[in-house]
């Protein structure tokens, strides 16, 4: 033991510069990443800013049981899971099909143009995207006009709770479908061309080649993406929700992460400890889900995320 310390000291002295170089990164992670993790023990306290972190009373699991009995508990969990599931069910196939069809474009210039244009919405900030959505979905917006032309009622579509999840997921697909093809296209580009040539000789058509060569070859990529997405099923980000939700659609739009905001920073009487408990509860579930997903990935593929 003593010897080990001595060796370590010698090594630190020898590579002094290396330790100075790594110091900023280590400090960053300790203060700004592990600091809040330590701070999340306020979920077990009745934190009062006036009393401070060390002066507040411990209350055990009070806030967690409060969350389970919260009238909004089922609502936020349901909204979170539904938005996640809709996103997975619609956006993954959309990206895969789009990638398959891009892969079939013969003219490489046209292919590049399609790709570049499909990446465009990905580079526009979320605030601008949501601002555009608000305009387009307003009672005289262009999407509303198309909607009413097709037989729908003309009104502000963002005010209708029943439409919220569709709007959220569909706009998400529009913004990311092009970008999400990158990973599948790169998997397709590593497929051996000889397989296609052999299939040509057998007289296979385009769909047959897609079905029997392309899709089986990218299946491992699809599986990994799917499991990763499943691991994030409880973590719908609050940013888009905060930008798009309003008092009318809140019942369909409020997810766990935005509920944490509504309880604390967005409230006139912030409940710091309670909202931290809600946040901590979901963080732990997320971690378990990701770990589980990683295990499954390793079982199927031999390699996981870590």
């Amino acid at each position: 033991m003593k010897n080990k310390w001595k060796n370590l000291k010698r090594e630190m002295k020898k590579n002094r510069q290396l330790y100075f170089i790594v110091l900023p990164v280590v400090l960053f992670y300790i203060i700004f990443r592990y600091g809040p993790m330590y701070g999340s023990i306020i979920a077990f306290m009745d934190y009062r800013p006036a009393k401070g972190f060390f002066g507040s009373d411990w209350v055990g699991l009070k806030h967690f049981s409060k969350f389970f009995n919260d009238t909004y508990f089922l609502r936020v969990i349901r909204n979170t899971i539904l938005i996640s599931v809709y996103s997975i069910v619609f956006s993954m196939p959309a990206a895969i099909i789009f990638a398959l069809l891009i892969n079939e474009i013969r003219n490489s210039k046209f292919k590049k143009t399609v790709q570049t244009i499909s990446y465009l919405p990905h580079f526009v900030s979320l605030v601008v995207i949501c601002g555009m959505l608000k305009e387009f979905l307003g009672s005289d917006g262009i999407i509303t006009s198309i909607f009413s032309f097709l037989g729908g009622e003309r009104k502000n579509l963002l005010m209708v709770p029943e439409y919220y999840k569709t709007i959220h997921v569909a706009s998400g697909i529009w913004q990311t479908v092009g970008w999400n093809t990158i990973i599948y296209l790169s998997a397709m580009s590593s497929i051996d061309q000889e397989q296609y040539e052999a299939a040509d000789l057998d007289g296979a058509g385009r769909f047959a080649k897609m079905r029997y060569i392309t899709i089986p070859c990218i299946l491992p990529t699809i599986t990994i993406m799917f499991i990763m997405k499943l691991g994030q099923v409880m973590s719908v980000g609050y940013e888009k929700i905060l930008l798009l939700s309003n008092t009318a659609n809140r019942e369909a739009a409020q997810v766990i992460s935005s509920y944490v905001y509504d309880l604390s920073l967005g409230a006139s009487y912030p409940q710091y400890s309670y909202s931290s408990a809600v946040g901590l509860f979901t963080s732990v579930i997320n971690l378990l889900l990701v770990t589980l997903g990683n295990k499954i990935c390793k079982m199927l593929n031999g390699s996981g995320l870590w």
């Binding site: 600091g35 993790m37 701070g39 971690l287």
Partner: peptide, 18 residues
Amino acid sequence: MMIFTMYFSGGMIPTYIL
């Protein structure tokens, strides 16, 4: 330590208080 923070974080409120 670094990778762990990709999957687990202290959350919105503790970060804000810090």
